[in-house]
Simulated assay, not measured.
Amino acid sequence: MTSVTHAWQSAAEAVVAEWGIDATQAGIDVVFVSESENFVFRVRDDDGRQYVLRLHRPGYHNRSELDAEHIWIQVLAEAGLKVPCAHRTSDDSGYAIAKGPDGSRFAGLYDWEEGQILSEVLASDNSQLAHWYEQIGTTAARMHLTAMAFKPDDTFVRHAFDAEGTMGDQPFWGRFWDDSRHTSEDSEYLNDLRNHIHRRLKTLPTSSDTYGMIHADMHANNVLTTNDEIMVIDFDDAGFGWYQFDLAVALPAHDSPHHGIAADALIRGYQSVRSMGPQFFESIPLFQLIRSMNHIGWFLARYDLPQKHLRSMVNGIRERVVSVIPDFDV
Rank of each mutant, 00 (worst) to 15 (best):
K308Y: 01
R268Y: 09
I317W: 02
R311V: 02
P285D: 09
H295Y: 14
Q288S: 14
I267A: 11
Q288K: 15
M293S: 10
I267K: 14
S272R: 07
S312P: 00
S272K: 10
V273P: 10
N294W: 06
P285A: 08
N294Y: 07
S283T: 13
I290W: 05
L305M: 09
S272N: 08
P306Q: 04
K308A: 06
D304Y: 05
I296E: 03
L305N: 03
W298P: 01
I296D: 05
D304M: 09
M313E: 01
R291P: 09
N315W: 00
D304V: 04
R291M: 02
Y303G: 02
N315G: 06
K308W: 03
L300A: 13
R268Q: 13
Y303L: 07
R311A: 01
M293H: 08
L286I: 10
P306V: 00
L305Y: 03
I290T: 06
G316N: 15
G316L: 07
M276V: 05
R291C: 11
Y303C: 02
A301W: 01
R318V: 01
F280L: 07
S312H: 01
M313L: 05
S283W: 06
P285G: 09
R318S: 01
H295D: 12
F280N: 10
I284C: 08
H309N: 09
Y303I: 00
P278G: 08
L286R: 12
F299Y: 03
Q271T: 15
Q307K: 12
M313T: 02
I267H: 09
